[in-house]
Design a protein around this nucleic acid. Structure first.
Lengths: 228, 228
DNA sequence: TAGATTGTTAATCGATTAACAATC
DNA sequence: TAGATTGTTAATCGATTAACAATC
């Protein structure tokens, strides 16, 4: 096998992941401003509201291609448009959910995903009890049907909400069906071909962060502290 | 108001957030090894399996206080113990869920949270239809009761799974009840006292990252590319 | 005009990775 | 012993923050 030197495209400049994660927060805040009739906004405004450095806000917004006006700021509606266009929220991408348990069901119920570029088209499960049911208008199908359907429907995104011990199996089926990206809600680390993208949504990990910050906060200034 | 210089405790050394996020992944992998009877493991092994740099693995593990043996590695069970102890998974912390919709319900159903230090004790909602119901043995109560109950039961963690436009209200009630940390599953940025810790679990933001990586991957080597 | 705000380049900070000595 | 692996210090890398010129 020949190693092909794939140079990163010069025009598509790299956007830091933290920036991508902040853009939806700006978007939500801006929608609020827009609904209250606000026409322009400055980075410092956004910054104080969202507790972020104004320079950081400016850089993040610049990444979407918007150009602001010195002394004025950014037009709110343009900014919303720019973020939506940049994040690809104008046209939705189809996805399959594997694991029609409570979490899978919750994601399907979460109708607003459609506004944020994600369209869940069907769910898959191993449990015969669940197969044939409908969740929010989406059919629950047998996992065996996944690969062929994914290929036929050109579905490129798979969402894994199975129990952890079934996650690899689910991932294998998705890969076999030609899925290019997997959103993994289990704590399992998936073994996948290099080319497949994974986004781990480990709730236990998030809770570990929260919990650790809480412990630190309580530890620094405990109730019996002589500071107060 | 006097500004009090709170020096960070010298003994409690700072653990980088990325490290905290990786520890649960190690834990999951190690549990698998343990169940297959494996007794020791090296950082390089973990690294290749989880696609992480071995030095990074070593530093992460060291943060939990474990001491390995050169040439041998780490005893698997000790390592599991060490991670659990470090993350405080031995004793659970009580939490309230605000918003008994599909996501709140899913989190309550997620029984395994108990093994990872989190115990959801009750859910709260505004909807009279939902109040009085029971989800997995946890009662759904009226939000009005939240502050007094939180105070009485010494609940320090609140999980917000309401619609985005009710998130601030939910947060205010939690803060009023004396909650010290909020796990926010809505895209709203909450306005909170400095002392209250927030962990935002913005699914749209996560999806934005996944989606952007996917686009980049497809963009670099598109179907019609002359590379293949 | 003066002042506020953008856009951009430079400095800082923190996390990752590399290098290497210590050790079983 | 030799080689593999840990533990730790140094170098690198990337993101955040600071500084400042451009501009309306």
């Amino acid at each position: 096998m020949t190693t092909v030197q794939v140079s990163p495209q010069p025009d598509v400049k790299h956007i830091p992941e933290p920036t991508l994660r902040r853009l939806p927060a700006y978007h939500h805040y801006l929608k609020g401003l827009a609904s209250r009739g606000r026409e322009v906004v400055s980075c410092s405004r956004i910054g104080t509201e969202l507790r972020l450095d104004p320079t950081q806000v400016r850089k993040d917004l610049a990444a979407t291609g918007i150009i602001g006006r010195p002394k004025v700021g950014y037009p709110v509606t343009d900014l919303i448009e720019s973020i939506e266009a940049f994040l690809g929220w104008k046209n939705v991408t189809d996805a399959f959910v594997v694991g029609a348990g409570s979490l899978g069901t919750a994601l399907i119920h979460h109708q607003s995903f459609n506004q944020y570029g994600l369209n869940i088209v069907a769910a898959f499960d191993k449990d015969p009890e669940k197969i044939g049911k409908t969740i929010c208008g989406k059919e629950v199908l047998a996992v065996e049907k996944l690969p062929s359907l994914a290929a036929r429907m050109h579905v490129h995104i798979g969402i894994v909400t199975t129990p952890a011990d079934a996650a690899q199996e689910a991932a294998d089926l998705l890969v076999f069906g030609g899925v290019k990206a997997i959103w993994n809600f289990t704590p399992a680390s998936l073994t996948l071909p290099e080319s497949v993208i994974v986004q781990n949504e480990d709730l236990f990990a998030s809770f570990a962060v929260l919990s650790s910050k809480l412990k630190a906060a309580l530890g620094v200034a405990p109730a019996h502290s002589n500071w107060e």
